[in-house]
């Protein structure tokens, strides 16, 4: 519907993200940029399930924790390099998402919401208590950074270039999927499962595919995060973390790739700017979700589309149609 706007928006956001380090190389800011890149991947992952397929799945953090841990275990305990561990991590998370996706997608609405939050608790219980395998409450230390050629990527700045490249590729991939017949199938199932089935779309398989895509994307995010931090421990993964990703997606724009990218970028940076609010910033997040849901259900990306439409004088006027679909 807004293909041109979408592509321009994505190009602008990524251009800004890529050139920012030229102007600002303060170590803390570079670290935040790294987190921006990782959060973008995670929110895009959530977008596949919640935005494209329309399933209220709250278990992304569970996948994320598993991805971080599998990269850590593979590199630290089994001596793989970062680049060897990434494909294995993705295989692990996508198989898990397949296993989880197949039976649970029969569940609808709030049943899936409960089941997926249960999934987080189960994952966390295992991470905390299976000491011999996961390192228990102490987590895993000394996760290596990736090599490029023969040089170890030590600085956060260089790591950022790897992270943002991967993020950009994944964003392009997500856009390609959105435009493919799978993307159309996702949205058909989301908007009206019954009629989509009459059109010959296998709604079950479509949803499973959304799950697997989510697993693959969280696999990337987890690998990057574990390597960036150098350590993982179970208390990093909380239910509230899940809520922040959901907030990023809703505020950016449910069901829109640039929306996910924009939401993750803006809110990750805002969180850092709002650190003076300290423990109160989650209150702000919660309010933000509700306000955006009520007053701009398409997220801030709809306004960005309008501005881009005007700047580049594109023909198709933003209509209400997109918003209704999102709701």
């Amino acid at each position: 519907m807004f293909k041109k706007e979408r592509n321009i928006a994505l190009a602008i956001i990524f251009l800004i993200l890529i050139i920012t380090p030229i102007f600002d190389r303060a170590p803390y800011h570079i670290f935040v940029l790294n987190m921006v890149a990782i959060n973008i991947i995670l929110v895009m992952a959530l977008n596949f399930i919640l935005g494209f397929a329309g399933q209220v799945f709250l278990g992304t953090v569970g996948f994320y924790a598993i991805a971080c841990y599998s990269t850590s275990l593979l590199t630290v305990n089994y001596g793989l390099s970062f680049w060897q561990a990434v494909p294995f991590t993705i295989i692990v998370t996508s198989i898990l998402s397949l296993i989880l996706g197949l039976p649970t997608l029969k569940l609808k609405g709030f049943y899936l919401a409960l089941m997926s939050s249960g999934f987080i608790y189960i994952v966390l219980d295992i991470l905390r208590n299976w000491k011999s395998f996961t390192g228990g409450v102490w987590g895993i230390m000394g996760i290596p950074r990736p090599f490029i050629g023969t040089t170890l990527v030590r600085s956060d700045l260089h790591f950022y270039f790897i992270a943002i490249t991967i993020t950009l590729c994944l964003a392009i991939f997500a856009v390609l999927i959105e435009d493919s017949k799978f993307g159309r199938a996702f949205k058909a199932v989301r908007d009206d499962q019954l009629s989509s089935e009459m059109l010959g779309i296998n709604s079950h398989m479509t949803k499973v595919l959304a799950f697997v895509m989510c697993g693959i994307y969280t696999g990337f995010a987890g690998s990057l995060f574990a390597s960036l931090q150098g350590f993982v421990s179970p208390e990093m993964y909380t239910f509230e973390l899940n809520a922040t990703y959901m907030c990023m997606l809703v505020v950016g724009g449910l069901g829109s790739v640039p929306g996910a990218v924009l939401g993750a970028t803006v809110l990750t940076i805002t969180t850092e700017l709002l650190r003076f609010l300290r423990e109160k910033y989650l209150t702000f997040y919660a309010l933000l979700i509700i306000i955006v849901l009520i007053y701009m259900p398409g997220g801030i990306i709809t306004y960005v589309y309008q501005i881009i439409g005007r700047l580049f004088s594109l023909k198709n006027k933003p209509s209400q149609k997109e918003e209704i679909n999102v709701r």
């Binding site: 303060a26 170590p27 803390y28 800011h29 670290f31 935040v32 987190m35 987590g139 995060f225 931090q229 350590f231 421990s233 208390e235 990093m236 909380t238 509230e240 973390l241 850092e272 650190r275 300290r278 423990e279 910033y281």
Partner: peptide, 19 residues
């Protein structure tokens, strides 16, 4: 700075404090 009792957030917060 709030750590939210997470080592990852704590590390971010310390970078903010230091830099």
């Amino acid at each position: 700075q709030d750590t939210e009792s997470s080592a990852a957030t704590g590390r971010m917060a310390v970078q903010k404090l230091i830099f």
